[in-house]
Each structure stands twice: as C-alpha cells, then as structure tokens.
Write a protein that binds this DNA or RNA. Structure first.
Lengths: 200, 200, 200, 200
DNA sequence: GCTTAATCGAGACGGTACGTCCGGTCTTACC
DNA sequence: GGTAAGACCGGACGTACCGTCTCGATTAAGC
C-alpha cells in the first residue's frame, strides 16, 4: 500500500496522525531556513535533521527525498497574492505578472524557486508536485478570468485558454530560468501588453 | 592567470596546445554517452574518466565541473537547424519553433537539455555558458529576421526585439521545464500564430 | 527498587506475575530460533520482537539486553547431561568431557555457545550470569566427585579442587574459543588421561 | 584477484606500496588508543578515522573490518617476552605462563585481548588471524622446548605436543574468558606444577 | 459488575554507526 | 609537462538498530 505525498507515491508509512507535530514544524522551518540561506544544492538531509534537532530517519520516514522536504517547506512559507480575481482582465493579468516578478526578484524564498525548478528537471515526482501544488493553483484564477473575458467578448474566443495563459507566464519564467536577460517591471508590462494585443 | 572556458573562468592549466587530442575526444564521447544513457544526475567525473580511459585529473585540468564537461559534450554532438534565414518572417519563426520542438521531444541528447538547464539553476557559470553558446546563437538569426521584417513594415516597429522573440521561444521552454503540459506541433503552431498576431 | 535477573540487576519492572506467558514463551522461542539460525551477531531485539509477534517494549521491560534474552532462551532450550554423579571418578570426568564435546560439536544451540561466551567478554552481566547459571552447575557435581575421590585417597589431596577441574574443562574451551585446533573425542580422551595422571 | 591480510582474504586493493605511511601509522595509533581507552565495543570505524585525521574510505580500503584494524593495531603495539627458549623445560613453561598472566592482568592492551577473542567468536577471519599471528608464534618456542625435553627423556614421549601445551595455556585462558575465577600468580604456578606432574 | 492500573502490540522518536559513493586534490611513474 | 592510475581527506547518502516514548486496546484485580 502507499499514499500520495504532494504527488509522490511512497511506501505507506503508517498513520500520519501519529507523527510528531513538533518535529514536523521544526523540519519545515529548518529546511526552509537552510534553503534560503545557502541554496538548494547545499541543503542536505543530515543538515536539516541536525538543525531541526531531529533524527535523520524521521525525515526519511515522511519524505522520500530532499526535494520533497524542501518543496513542502517552500509551500509552507511562501505565498503569492491574493490578487483581484474579477473585474478588468487586463488588470488581473498585470497583477499576476507583477506578483510573480516581485516574488522572483525580491523574495527570499521566491528567488530560490528557480533552484527547485532546476531540481525538478531530474526528479519527476518533484516536477509533478510543483506543477500541481504551486503552478496550477496560480494559473487557475487567471484561466477563469480569461474564460469570462472570452464569454464577454473582450478576448478572442478561438484561443485555447492554457496556450493563452502561457503567453504571459512563460516569458517571465523563460528569463528566470533560461535566457539570463533582465527580468523587471518594464519587461513584465511589455509582455502583458503584447499578450493582450495577441488576444484581442 | 586564468582563461575563459565557455564563460567559465578557470585557473590557467598550462599550455592547451599540449593537451591530448585523443583524451579530449574520448572524454566528450564518454560524457555524452553517459549523459544520454543515464541522465545528468548519474553522470560523475569518475564515470566519465573511467569510460574514456582517462585519468580523473585530466578532466579537472581542462574542465572546472561536471556541468562544463557535459555541456561541451552536448555542444559537440547536438545541433539544430540550419533553418531558412531569409524570406517570410512567419516561415522562419515556424521553422525555429518546430526545430526546438523536434529536438526536445525526439532527440536523444536534446531531450536531456532540460536536465542541463536544471543544473544551470545552481551553477551560474553553466547558466552563462548555455545562454551564450547555445541559446543566443539560435536566437540571433531570428532576431535579425525580425528586425528586417520591422524595417519592411511587416511587423510592428514599436516592440523590443528580444521581448518579441521571447513570445515564441518562451512558451516552448515553459512547457518543457515548468508546466508539464503537452509540448507538440499543434502547440507550437498555436504559439507562433498568436505571436504573429501580437506583432502585426 | 530492582530485581535480579540471571545475575543482572535491573530496575524493578512491576509485578512479574502479570507478565504474559504467551509472550514470554514466544520471545524465548523466537530468540533461540534466530540465534541458532543466523548467529548471535545478527540477532536483534527488533528481530526477536517481530518474530515473536510482540512489542519491542515488552522485551525491554523484562530483559536488559540482547545478551540476557538470548542466554535465557539458550538456558531454556539447551541441556547437557545428566551424567553419572557417583562411582568411578575417571568415568565421571570422561562423561563430562564427552558431554561438553558433543554439545559444542554437534548441537544446534551448543555450537553457538562460543558466540555467547564471546559476547560476554564485553558484557560483565552476561559473563556473570553465564558463569553462575551455566558453567558452575556443570562443574559442581564434578567438584563434588573430585573431593570424594580425594577423601577416598584415589586422588592427590594437595590440589585445589577448582584448579584440578580446570585441567580438564579448560582445554576443551581453549580449543573451542582460542586455538582453532581440532576438538574431537581423541583430544577429549587424551586430556582426561593427562589430567588423571596429573592428579594421581 | 585478492591478497591475504592477516589471514583475511580481501579484494585486491591495488598496490600496497602506494599506501600512505603517515595514514597507516596514524590509524594504528588511533585504533589502539581507542581500543585501550574505551574497549572494543565502543571502537568504531568512524571514530578511528576521525582520531587519525583520515578519510573513512582509507580504512575500508586497507582493512575489511573493525576487528582487522584493531587486531593489527594490537599486534603493532603489544608484545610479550622474549623468554628464555632453552635450558630447563620447567623454567621455560613457568616463564611463559607468567608472561601471559602479566599481560592479561597488568597490561593496558593485554587486558583488552579477551575482548578481541570475544569478537573472534563471530568473525572467523579474525579468529584465524589471531590464531596464526598471535597465539601460534607464542606456542611455537614452547613446543620446541617440549620436544627437546621429550628427546632428552625429561618428559613423557607418548604425549602429543599440542595437547601437552594446552594443559598449561588453556587454564590461563579459561579463567580469562570463561570461569570468572581468579587469575593470579599462585594459580599460574599451580597449573604449571600440575602440568609438569602430568608430563613426567 | 466496575473501575483502575499495568501490560500488551505497534510504531514514531532522537541518535549513532554502518558501508558506499563521489568530489576535488595529491602523488607516482611513464612518456 | 601532460598523462593514466589511483590513494588521499572529506562528507552526504540511505539503512539498520538502539533504547525511549506514546498511543489505544486488553486484561486482570480489587472494590
């Protein structure tokens, strides 16, 4: 038997109700602190356990890998938004674009997200967990707003919603992960404008 | 003293003219083979050296890290294009989009590129090298074609060229690296169409 | 408060009358089976508990250590003798020598005794328990017979009884534990003969 | 291919000539110090490596187990004798008996030997190594002296030499390892006297 | 019969040692 | 001086047990 953890399928580790809340808290705190301070690479299972004052086995009992712990710690600490979810579609789009931008550029943990995405390239479970737990929840309201705008006739109805969403989310992450070119407010605005133009 | 290697700054390791061509060849072949067969994570410096029949020190003498060797091996083996560089801008854009798509989806080494990009998230030297040696050379001709199209009046002149390029390159990499949604020809076409619409 | 267990002094664990007879039986059976099958080293408290279908705490409640459980299981299962306790002293000596020999060479649990003696070298409690519960009960009748033989004038009276006993018991255990030389019936006979010669 | 180490058969670890003399010295010193200070049980491979300022892998490269390291360290540090090897057989016997006695009772490392013998009960390689490298070299001169005494007619010629030797060596080790009764000079003398009586 | 307390199976917990793997440096002998 | 070979120190890995602890469920006495 097995259970799902953030999309991970791991051997059933008995009853989650029996796990120690103190240890769980201490582990997430320690993992996040080490992640933010020194970066993903230098986080180690042993280091997290030591900082949390916890046995190493306790980590392995509840998480299958370093990526899983760090990502759960990330989810536990980092939030984005909330943003206006109704009203002008253009404003919604702009709010989200600037929200991501701020997170990636300013935020302590946010600016480390790219390292997590990097780790996910060789860890399919982490990749799935991140897609489901982090990205999709942030795309969903925008997708909803887009559909409403399409029904209202403010946006072309012949475009697949996810493809349209990618038009604005993708460039931000492309600069974050790939191109190395500047990622700033002016760029976010330009992308949003082009996107709106494409969708009109 | 130091020299530049693919953007890496490494301590000057004596006279490059004296390096063994056989070893160099064997190392790149071994590194690429291991990379394609088992993935980036499981490539090790020792493994490359053993497979190449080479001393471990020889790797460290000429490359600063695993990422550097593997990326040079990748550059050595994987190519994309050439694509038509003049004529209809839309056709050029489409050719490039499909070129990347094919590489990432079909190609042996190409489908491993995402792992290299992943590694680059915690290795700034590798990130710079990849941006300069891999991505920029593939963007340059498209940027040139875009500018000519702008001068010809076929494309809006009030858009920054790199931002415009991102509109088509970014979504492909976003789906590759982040979203987990399908990356196929229909998507590439849709993205190109939207992009052209935005730029008209 | 504390109680004595086979020479161990352990914290008093409440009322022994309340202990579960089923668990006690199952534990001794499991411990002995694991000991005989895989040897002392590979016996673990957790392994015993699992095989006995018993909680780990139940072991720790009634026994202070692995050595204590295994030795009690050993005592519970392994016996030697009885041997003729009166009559010719030489015959008694020979009977005991061959009894030990058979146990060590043939017996399932007996041939594992050397491992228990080994463990006792770093566990004073186990050493004491073994001396009192295993070795002394087997020496006592021989000592008694020796003293009677001394009084009857069949054996020199100027020799300390324990020293004399050692002359025959020691070589058997020396070959078992130390020298690695063959331990067989011919050797046992030779030792007994020499011993009798020394004591005449 | 493999090589012999103190009777151990281990996978061939390349050229012993290349091993670091400094590390080798530091390891034996550290192992012996920890052994004498805290006892065999509490010696760990990691502890030896740390105290020696050596990588853990270096231990595993050259020794197959804790027992092997500690025993080599023991051999390196602990000596016994030399004793007079010719002249009166009784005197030789007495010298050896007192030599062992002194080692086991007084000596720092010597009094730990029983723990090594204990470990050997579950480690056949260690048992063999100890028999060949420690015990046999100490028995050999006495065996030689015994044979000369037999030829000179001072000792019965109808007794197997090793059996006769056991008569005096065994009781000392029996009290050390098994019986828990006092091991002192008076006992050693009594044993030697009885032994000489048996052999006359 | 009811309550109360100790024992039971189960298993999570903080630790410690294991033996392996790899990173990056160094040494040696050959070319 | 570059090279193949490989020993070296360091340190992270994931596993196995240790001995303690907490949890309900069960059981057995004493009221």
């Amino acid at each position: 038997m097995s259970r799902l953890f953030l999309g991970y399928s791991v051997p059933m580790p008995a009853d989650p109700a029996r796990r120690s809340q103190e240890s769980w808290r201490a582990i997430l705190d320690a993992a996040y602190a080490l992640f933010v301070e020194n970066g993903y690479q230098s986080v180690t299972m042993g280091g997290i356990a030591a900082r949390a004052g916890v046995g190493r086995q306790t980590l392995y009992r509840w998480w299958p890998s370093k990526g899983a712990v760090v990502f759960e710690a990330f989810l536990d600490k980092v939030s984005i938004g909330p943003f206006p979810a109704d009203g002008d579609f253009a404003a919604i789009l702009r709010a989200y674009a600037h929200g991501f931008l701020t997170l990636y550029v300013d935020g302590a943990g946010g600016s480390r997200l790219r390292e997590l995405i990097g780790a996910a390239q060789t860890d399919p479970d982490l990749a799935r967990a991140m897609a489901e737990q982090w990205f999709e929840p942030r795309r969903a309201p925008v997708r909803q707003a887009l559909r409403e705008a399409q029904q209202a006739g403010a946006v072309r109805a012949d475009v697949d919603a996810d493809t349209a969403l990618d038009l604005v989310f993708a460039p931000l992450h492309y600069r974050l992960l790939v191109s190395g070119q500047p990622l700033d407010a002016a760029y976010a605005d330009a992308v949003v404008d082009l996107c709106l133009h494409a969708l009109r």
